[in-house]
Amino acid sequence: MVNDDRADMIAGILIGVAGVAIAIYAAAQFPMGTLRRLGPGMFPVGLGVTLALLGLGLAVKSWRNLTLTAVEDRFRLKFEIKTGLLTIAGVVAFALLLRPLGLVPAIFAVVGISAFADDRNTPIAIAKLAVVSAVLATLIFKVGLSMNFSLVAWNWS
């Protein structure tokens, strides 16, 4: 974990803005009710205001730090963009393919896509891994727990 004051400041500002937006949206959309009978709007508005204050607090705090630390002393944020994208893409592909194509193709998608996130995995190893995973999942969820999946389907509706 790293602390980057610039990132914290941006995060603080974003959260502050989100808080204000939530408060305004909730106040406009949901009735506030009376003090005695609080409506569905009261709690979200309070929450939005709290978030806005906390975001502001974080932004102010990190801004103060920014002025105190020299540029070269700051940590640098490094996101594993490739890993993140491939992993998320695999999960999304699973979600989108499960109904139309069935369990086995969806497993090929999630295993096949996400496995590329690690450079040590070769295409052949990934293919083997996908087959093994599909067999494993079929045995556990279909045979063992008899859950309601179709293994292969053709159902684009």
């Binding site: 695999g90 295993v111 996400s114 496995a115 996130a117 995973s133 999942a137």
Partner: peptide
Amino acid sequence: PYQWLFPVILMFVCI
């Protein structure tokens, strides 16, 4: 190896 384990973990998460 973890590089074989994590795609399977993701599969279990999805299912």
